[in-house]
Design a binder for these strands. Structure first.
Length: 405
RNA sequence: GCGAUUGUAGCUUAAUGGUAAAGCAGCGGGUUGUGGUCCCGCCGACGUGGGUUCGAUUCCCAUCAAUCGCC
């Protein structure tokens, strides 16, 4: 293909944009692609940050409130997590970025000595907005009878061109977050990688709404670049929903700005069958030498697909969230430990798993803990799931290196 | 022995002269930039025997059981 002209074009645009945003402090991250697959778009890489280096592709487990729920930072490390993502909106509410800053920043605060990202709060524009109104998440299983069209506002939040007025789930107070506010909070929090404030759109949003929202998100992206004064890496977020042409437009626009890396956000329509095509469309337009992060996707079955498409990092609540609802992921599929059958099952969660949970604990005991609502049950499942996801991805990295993927 | 009160799903409780609601428990689903405390299904009951009534879980009688009180 014509990779040369593309890179050249990107380089030119980068120079211009870097000049234009000359106040933008250069970030202290470095991304090196160590191996490019010849059988897919998958690549291996090293992402260096002020808090260490990670090997990509990798999962970014979700630590919304500066914790992998149920685990200590040491346990997250032992489960082979390399980098975590915390949340600007939630940490702004509790305990507030000032307190985190006074505690020495997010790394010191949570005693995590490895790389960190913070999500910008853009997802909460959807999850506390139309997502909540329609009872939908970012990935639908099937078409539903709802819609979001131009001019419509969610019930509990107000979206304007300047930003978003939330209603605090903590005390009901109004709370405004726009691009400069999000960046200011993220700078106080002090993660290695931060994200632009965006609007994640609903899977039931129509094209007109998505188009208007996209322009707003693009303006916000530029404002975030201007607002940033730290040397944190700033990743721009591509939106455009399920509309391939809007995705392409967004990737071209966001990709032309001097971000240190890129996030792909938003939704993929009535089901996830078009997701690979959307991701490919976007990645073709992004500078190939910069890291690409896929926001909020990562069921086990999705992982090979997104890695083959050329995604370097991706965050997902699935391993941790499902754990707290009693689900163990295994090499043989999912187990619902709440099912009666596991009360007398003396096997480990996954006979092939090397994690300490599978080395020492039986399904019967974990099922008992889950049914008895003992927090240790949630912890054991959380640890196992993270370990399993991480070793699954480590195996994919090996296969990429071996030329099989 | 006498008196009072109460008997509705495994448990705790609703309602009702036209066959019954809920929470917990049980069984099973859901969950993709996070709700451990969430959402959705399913299972499941009128102590027993008579009487009144077109019809009784409901009203009446007896009986059994439980609780409380008195001898």
């Amino acid at each position: 293909m014509c990779t040369q002209p593309f890179s050249l074009l990107h380089s030119v645009i980068h120079l211009q944009q870097t000049f234009f945003y000359k106040d933008h402090t250069s970030a202290m991250i470095e991304f090196n692609i160590t191996y490019q697959s010849s059988v897919s778009s998958a690549r291996l890489g090293k992402l260096k940050t002020p808090h260490g280096e990670i090997t990509t592709p990798t999962l970014v487990p979700v630590a919304t409130q500066a914790v992998i729920k149920t685990l200590t930072s040491q346990e997250a490390e032992e489960a082979d997590c390399q980098i975590l993502i915390a949340n600007t909106f939630h940490l702004h509410l509790k305990p507030g970025e000032e307190l985190v800053d006074q505690a020495g920043g997010l790394h010191e605060f949570m005693n995590w000595r490895h790389p960190l990202m913070t999500d910008s709060g853009g997802f909460q524009v959807f999850s506390l907005g139309f997502g909540q109104d329609h009872g939908v998440g970012k990935v639908l299983k099937q078409k539903i009878d709802e819609s979001v069209t131009i001019g419509q506002q969610p019930k509990n939040i107000t979206i304007t061109n300047e930003g978003v007025t939330f209603r605090s789930p903590v005390d009901g107070q109004k709370l405004f977050i726009g691009p400069p506010e999000s960046i200011a909070i993220q700078q106080k929090l002090g993660a290695d990688i931060i994200y632009t404030f965006d609007e994640a759109t609903s899977p039931v949003a129509n094209k007109e709404y998505t188009k208007v929202s996209l322009e707003r998100t693009h303006n916000w992206a530029k404002q975030c670049l201007s607002a940033k004064t730290s040397n944190q890496a700033l990743f721009g977020i591509v939106q455009g929903g399920k509309f391939t042409d809007l995705r392409k437009e967004s990737a071209q626009f966001i990709g032309s700005l001097p971000f240190d890396g890129f996030g792909i956000g938003g939704e993929y329509g009535d089901d996830k069958t078009i997701m690979p095509e959307i991701i490919q469309t976007v990645l073709q337009e992004l500078p190939p030498d910069k890291p690409r992060h896929l926001l909020g996707i990562g069921h086990l079955e999705d992982i090979p697909t997104i890695i083959k498409a050329g995604i370097d990092t991706f965050d997902c609540i699935v391993p941790t969230h499902y754990a707290r609802h009693g689900t163990a992921f295994t090499s043989q599929g999912k187990l619902n430990l709440k099912n009666a059958i596991f009360m007398n099952d003396q096997k480990p969660l996954d006979p092939k798993c090397q994690c300490f949970v599978c080395q020492g604990y039986k399904r019967s005991y974990i099922a008992h803990l889950i049914k008895a609502q003992e927090i240790t049950g949630l912890k054991l499942l959380t640890f196992h799931n993270l370990h399993l996801f991480n070793s699954y991805i480590a195996d994919i990295r090996q296969q990429i290196k071996a030329g099989k993927i």
